[in-house]
Design a protein around this nucleic acid. Structure first.
Lengths: 228, 228, 228, 228
DNA sequence: TGCTAAGCGAGACGGTACGTCCCGTCTTAAT
DNA sequence: ATTAAGACGGGACGTACCGTCTCGCTTAGCA
């Protein structure tokens, strides 16, 4: 993640930055994040460990969140899209792609960090681009290939599926309920590919019949009457 | 949410607590949360608005997170499980059940709050019980009914499906990518019920064939289910 | 010099101050003043040496100047008015009374401190009361006694004389031109008592004659014409 | 006040200095001094107002104090020695000579500035030469003329008297106790010329008698002059 | 009914970290 | 060669808030 100056101005006049400080600060940041998590990430402490001062950090990153993002970005590498020809395997592997970030960085750090990024649109975008988009792009390619190969239906909602991948991994990493194992990944993939309905067309027909009987019920925020 | 003393000590001798303070603090907390989000939730500010002092708050709730949880709990009401007999509609409605919390409380507040709760198991449990479990229970009932009705396959993984519900809603509310509309909810439900594969058995067969040919090439630690 | 709280409120509720901190801060202040002078008096450094924090100092004294004044006041003791019956000796000794402050505290410290106090009337008053007034009062008594004794003329301008004492000591201590020795003190006293005119009445008469000739010259800010 | 380079180096090769900056900086300095006093004299602010940069100032003056001295010197003009033939009037006017500096420049500025100059001998000398010496020289001439004229005793201590003038003006300007009016100046002059003793020889005699009776009782280190 | 002690309310404390101002210096580009 | 100007690294500032301690008062339960 680029520092403030080099991303806004081309290397104009003025004393150049000491690159050792950049490195030391990023390293100190990762260290503190690993030890004490995001709430313990104090610019004071980072400066102390990096052997520099708070203003030097502010000159590079406009606040705690951006510093953390920069540090994290420096450790996450762009994932390769799974591509074995086996759609089932590739999709299961897709979960691992999303999981990579949570294995590299403590999930609670990502969670806290995102919480701090959320209110600021620009920050939020930066977070997504750093932590989530690379995985989406990789697995997105995998999906495209599967569709092209004729394994998935052509009208498959790409983004929706990616959301399911991303959200599930995030959710489980976060709420720590169960960590996403390969076995579970495959079970989810099975569900997504196969569906859970015994007889989907019948369910669809029933739904449409109901809808015609009570057309007003199709509006948003509706509540279905308890009677059938 | 009960205050600390009334849940630990029986009302022994001494000056009784002023119940107006409890109310005023909860109200002030919700006010501040609504205005400035969780990072802006300062005990100082809450005390100021509630017309009381910080120690009075500490005496009731052991910290910011517990206070916020108490305040939030006082506003969330237990959702009723959707039950119209139409599985498709019920499940789509299930998303609204999960969404309710995010509509009542700012999503970024929930996110930040959880981030603060995560490190402490007891706090995390309290968060889950307050914010997530009620929805899971409600939609869980709906799922059970659908299985009992024969609409869903008997081996449907209940928790997995609830995770998809919960995580998707959380993810979208949080990352604000697209807000979860009823239409989208129905599309997701369709995917879950119907699956996205063109020919699932063929995919499964291919996967197994590949695995037997190159057992080492498959991802580590996974085992394909043998049943269709 | 009293700390802020104890001088404004009577010991109301709240946690009482740690008196060790008061002492440690005053001691550290004097230490720093002695080592590095007033410009080197950093609250940061004082806090460091006193083993406390900056806010703890601010809670006691509203800024660097007040802290320095308090520290200085704690070291200056009220001088006794010289009283030997020998007017000449007493007055010469009066210079030592004024000098005491400059011997206890580095003159440059006093000078810098006053420079910082000057713009704020309240601070200025506090400085005067702390550093200068005690000497004025003491030597004032000596003067009064000399007048009562009939040694000085009854219409002697008490404040004017004290100003000469105070200003000369201040001036010499400050500008370090010559340090005020006892010998010099006596020479000044001689001047003040005896005057430097060869024939004062004659000078006075001449002045009055001139004034009558050019009455407009007596106005303030006048410039005497070069012609006699 | 000459800038650094032109006084040390002869105009060697290289880019010539922009003389507008010199002027602009001096003007900005006086402006800031007038508005916010010496503590508010920030090189940052001066550079801002002068439309230049801090290094440009440092290149010309080695620090805040020298800059301020240069700016002040550019505004103070050399006073003419009072010379009307009327010793009383001339001496009273002498106070105005000393006062001129304090009327041109805010007294608190002079005080603060001197405080900053004091520790550095070279700087101190420069301050004295700029602010004080011109007045001393002027009034010194006046004194010499009065002695020559036979109005003052030949053994009058020239420097001592000048100190009284300078210190009193400084003291009153600074401590703002009473501003030095012409009337007061005349009263002081009267004191200096005439003395305040009722019978000086008697006082002197008494002092010497006491000293012979109790030589140890006299203050340490002083020696009474033997001459009258 | 009066006494005692438990517990409450509020204020203030000691301290951490914040974000900013300014200093004095270094570096590049221009003259 | 030296200037002008921008930016750097860093010291210190004054403040917000945290979590805790202390006080005086209120109240319930016991004598």
């Amino acid at each position: 993640m680029a520092s403030r100056r080099s991303s806004t101005t081309r290397g104009a006049g003025g004393r150049p930055r000491d690159p050792h400080i950049d490195e030391a600060v990023i390293a100190a940041t990762l260290e503190v994040l690993a030890e004490t998590g995001y709430p313990g990430l104090t610019l004071e402490e980072v400066a102390r460990r990096a052997g520099t001062s708070r203003p030097a950090i502010y000159r590079r990153w406009a606040g705690r969140a951006r510093l953390a993002l920069a540090a994290i970005a420096s450790r996450l590498d762009v994932p390769a899209p799974p591509d074995t020809g086996c759609t089932l395997c590739d999709l299961a592997e897709g979960f691992n792609v999303f999981l990579a970030a949570y294995r590299t960085i403590r999930p609670d750090v990502l969670s806290s960090l995102y919480a701090e990024c959320a209110p600021d649109p620009e920050l939020q975008a930066r977070y997504l681009e750093t932590v989530i988009e690379p995985s989406r792009r990789a697995v997105g390619e995998t999906l495209d290939r599967a569709v092209a190969r004729g394994d998935l239906r052509p009208d498959t909602d790409r983004e929706q599926l990616l959301d399911v991948f991303g959200s599930l991994v995030h959710y489980r990493a976060l709420f720590g309920r169960r960590h996403m194992s390969d076995t579970e990944a495959e079970k989810v993939v099975e569900t997504l590919l196969h569906g859970v309905a015994v007889d989907y067309p019948a369910l669809l027909a029933r739904s449409e019949a109901l809808e015609q009987a009570h057309p007003e019920a199709s509006t948003a925020h509706h509540a279905h009457p308890s009677a059938s």
